[in-house]
Design a protein around this nucleic acid. Sequence first.
DNA 1: AAATAATCGAGACGGTACGTCCTGTCTTTGG
DNA 2: CCAAAGACAGGACGTACCGTCTCGATTATTT
Lengths: 188, 188, 188, 188
Amino acid sequence: MSKGEALRDRTAALIVDSAAALLARSGETASMEDIATAAGIGRATLYRYFANRDELLRAMASASVEELAVQIGEADLDNAPFDEALTRLTRAIIATGSKYLALSRDGVGLTNAHPDADKALIQPVRGLFRRAIAEGSLRDGLSPDLLMSLYSGLVRGALGAGSDRRLGVEEMVATIVTVFLHGVRAKG
Amino acid sequence: MSKGEALRDRTAALIVDSAAALLARSGETASMEDIATAAGIGRATLYRYFANRDELLRAMASASVEELAVQIGEADLDNAPFDEALTRLTRAIIATGSKYLALSRDGVGLTNAHPDADKALIQPVRGLFRRAIAEGSLRDGLSPDLLMSLYSGLVRGALGAGSDRRLGVEEMVATIVTVFLHGVRAKG
Amino acid sequence: MSKGEALRDRTAALIVDSAAALLARSGETASMEDIATAAGIGRATLYRYFANRDELLRAMASASVEELAVQIGEADLDNAPFDEALTRLTRAIIATGSKYLALSRDGVGLTNAHPDADKALIQPVRGLFRRAIAEGSLRDGLSPDLLMSLYSGLVRGALGAGSDRRLGVEEMVATIVTVFLHGVRAKG
Amino acid sequence: MSKGEALRDRTAALIVDSAAALLARSGETASMEDIATAAGIGRATLYRYFANRDELLRAMASASVEELAVQIGEADLDNAPFDEALTRLTRAIIATGSKYLALSRDGVGLTNAHPDADKALIQPVRGLFRRAIAEGSLRDGLSPDLLMSLYSGLVRGALGAGSDRRLGVEEMVATIVTVFLHGVRAKG
DNA sequence: AAATAATCGAGACGGTACGTCCTGTCTTTGG
DNA sequence: CCAAAGACAGGACGTACCGTCTCGATTATTT
């Protein structure tokens, strides 16, 4: 029954999009009824697609993860020097930025959201940093995980700044990459 | 009636502390009844101190702001060279870290929480960065606000990393300051 | 949607009955939660049927009025001599007695409870007394309204006495009618 | 310390009066705070005089009982023929009528209100009816208790009618006594 | 007249009922 | 046969009241 499943998936995606738009506006508020109405469906139908409010949130996160995973995949991090790879990665993240930010603001762990999150997101990035460490281009004492946390914080900070002031995407990318690279680079 | 007010303030502080401890454990869950019980008071009394759940959350944020403001005040940022001042600032923030992190995770805006938040927190830090810019020790094209966002992201990222892995305070401080300074420094 | 409304009405009637039984036992006490539990439903559902405690009370009164109105209608007061009509009326009231008593004990005005209370209850009885006056079978100086008050008091008194001591229905009816019609003096 | 007790009793009486007036207006509503304010005292003081809302209600009933007992005592029921005694009794009750009515409307049993209620109120009246029975002036089959219930209902009914329409006291007394004694039929 | 005791108000506190709102699970109806 | 509509139980929220309590302040009483 591939046709029914396809329809179901399309509806689910529609709900997720509509919910994302609503939550971006209203924040954590917004009842399930509101979400259903915003999606143009009944509350019961919403529950038929997502058993929980939590599950809906996770589905939203999962959508972000997937979108981001595609972008990262296209960035082809492995086949570019570290600097270029980092620039591409940053550009990919910023492009999916708003959703990424909205999700990370709420308590939803992106990592738990999607079964492949680890494989599709964490692994490539960690691999990138691991490679840079192996190449000796980074300062000592910085583990891959710590690097990821710092980098993630930097991106998030820039995104926060970008949402207030109007910053062009390329401007943000350049700033992040420059600051991070000079900050962690071996020779200083 | 300074004595009555003093008692009231002390009780309110006790409630805020107890609630902070509980929420740190249970996350956003935990009903007002739970919070009251954890504080050893009745639900009605809790509502006599804080009209709303929101008001309680704001009070918690306000407490964090105040605590952090004291730490920053003691850091005496103006009378130290930039590097040293930044180290002190980072140490102050990390010291108040857990609460700062817990609050920032929830939707409570720290800035809106306390009337003096801007004066006591934002201004000194912005001043520090402004001074560094004036001294010419930072790279061009980095506004004070952008610097604050990047720095804040870096701190938050390090705090997130520190809560998972066990990182010593000084270790975290050193990492943050080093990465940030090399990242933004002029000559790079 | 006549079926849904019918179900709703049936449920409402069930709640009213169950509440009447409970209040007859527990008096004015008994929380809405208790009433809901006694009716075998949740508190929220109870509030979906009756917005207020007051509205529930009014519904109980209204039910009494309706029941009594039916009984009085069946008594066919107009087509019987005064003595017989009064006997039938008294029997009708006593039959609905317990509820009538319980409601009249609380502050709920029976008259305000039901839109047709006046037409269905007051009018027929007043008509009966008016007819008796017109027939000249009653002493002078007794207005229909005063007669109704006295009769009502007598019935209520007898009901009160009947609930304590065990008096058969027919015994009570006979006593009320006899006393009201002939007076207490032996030959008067 | 008879002086202190006297003052206390006077204050208590004042509270009871004020509360009676307030409750007559507002019905069962009216919080303890309202009652205290109406009496011109603080809530704590009110509770110092009456531990419960119930106790206050009972005190109000008790005051009525006492007042009525005095009136009945002065009526000297034993030293008058039945007709005259009943007239005096009715006059006494009607005189204290409003309070008697207000109390009997609420759930407060007058009998339980005052320790001497039975002795001061019930006994004399029952004695009156018992005497009438013994004299053979009443119809058979009417126990003293039933007579009291019927008489009480009649009085209450007349009081209810009197509060709506404007009926003079003597008019009401005459009607009650006449109806009760002679019945409503023209010549019976 | 000064010290002491009783009484007052003011109001905080624990507890509980109320009425509202939302969640997650159902049944019932219609396309 | 699945959608939309909506009823239901449960529970949290914020409000209001009750009965208990402690605290100063204002009285009366006592020495």
